[in-house]
Design a protein around this nucleic acid. Sequence first.
DNA 1: TTGCTCCTCACGTCACGTGAGGTGGC
DNA 2: TTGCTCCTCACGTCACGTGAGGTGGC
Lengths: 252, 252
Amino acid sequence: MAPDEGSSQGSWQSGSQSERTWRIGEVAAATGLTVRALHHYDEIGMVVPSERTASGHRLYTARDLTVLYRVTAMRQSGIPLTAIGDALTSPTDSGDVLRDVIDQQLEQVERQIRAAERLRERLLAARDEGGFDSGDWYAEIIKLMRQLPGHLSPEEIDRMSRRMGELGVVGSHAVGVEMPRLYGEAMTEMRIGTPASDPVVRRIADRLDQLAEVLRGPEPDGTGDRVRGMWVDLGGPEWGELVAYLDEARTS
Amino acid sequence: MAPDEGSSQGSWQSGSQSERTWRIGEVAAATGLTVRALHHYDEIGMVVPSERTASGHRLYTARDLTVLYRVTAMRQSGIPLTAIGDALTSPTDSGDVLRDVIDQQLEQVERQIRAAERLRERLLAARDEGGFDSGDWYAEIIKLMRQLPGHLSPEEIDRMSRRMGELGVVGSHAVGVEMPRLYGEAMTEMRIGTPASDPVVRRIADRLDQLAEVLRGPEPDGTGDRVRGMWVDLGGPEWGELVAYLDEARTS
DNA sequence: TTGCTCCTCACGTCACGTGAGGTGGC
DNA sequence: TTGCTCCTCACGTCACGTGAGGTGGC
């Protein structure tokens, strides 16, 4: 009597050389994955079942399942399959590569938490204000400039005011919505100790520069720097720190 | 002299009927989106520029930009484009549909935050323990059962022990890793007041049932119910509440 | 004339979902 | 023989990314 490898319990004869195996449907139930996902992992070589029946049905061994559980744990942590592959095929198997993958993922998750919390604030604000409109901030900004003499000459203020008029929605959104948000995010990163060389900070700095260019227009005249100086004076020492932090990000 | 609609400043002649318009590259810089993303929004009809030059170049009006800013704000909140489309084309435009979309997204974000925080705990644990292995819990469970007489007969314990031996990694992972996690998640949902009818709770209950089936095997004998009873006795009144909560989820 | 911007296809990405049509095993 | 499970294509999803090859405007 030949061992029947395709039985619903797998081959489990005592004294036999072959170990207990699981069919793909059993594996799906055990892991909560779909059959299609297991096919996918097989296709890309992530988890290839060690055996097949004569008719081609996949049979997973306990060792296969151990690998699979590790993969699902990492997947549920949001680690992409390519990175999981790297961690699994690394020489020591539980050494530095895995540690690096976990640390990277940990940083990303912590950033996700902060981003989601900011998102939550924004959604609450949008709900209270009844929408996602950007308001008409630039009039406020111009007023503020007039009230604080010594930074900009009346001519410069008029020129900026005209420029903002030309820019319309683009200007008011940049100054009133996006820049405050970007500066807020940068401030958070600085406070929690994210190094200025981190790509996240770099992205914020780059976007701020792009917006500054949009606002400056084709012929810059140095007004922008004086506006920045005004903000630093208004915002206190922490604003000065933030400006230095962003400058460092730009050169790293 | 015909108005030149394709100039880099758009048509902005004083006295002209036509308003200021923006070319696609200017819009990309203003919003931080890519040109390709704007093409995509045009293709699917999400934000279609109101004008084109004679040669086919897209021209965005201030009104187009206002819509676009609203879209980007919602996209950055993680709202899918289809839902954004629903909110934008709703009759009142700032009425119930938008409110619903925001509320739904708010719930999802709050769930994301909790999930990410749990993820963080798991990653920290994995880092401390040096990996994602599932350990050998079922021996502990069996021991616990022997120490608490009155719930299961020695024969039942032996049968369960044999069954766990057959299940191997599948059993120990289900009992030692996934079920504790699922019960923990369900407990969190219950404590924060998520209604039992919520699909999230339903998914947890369904997955628990599927795991129970995997553990029970082909011939159930009522042992499972007595094991549950044991857990309720061990866990105190909150465990009883949790069991009722999950039962409600299953019938909703 | 030279760059830079813009155009329209059209295929690629990521981790599978979803049938289509057929075979295997109790 | 009837169900249920399994098999292999193969196209679809989502929000764009990434060239390919060509035109437009200062």
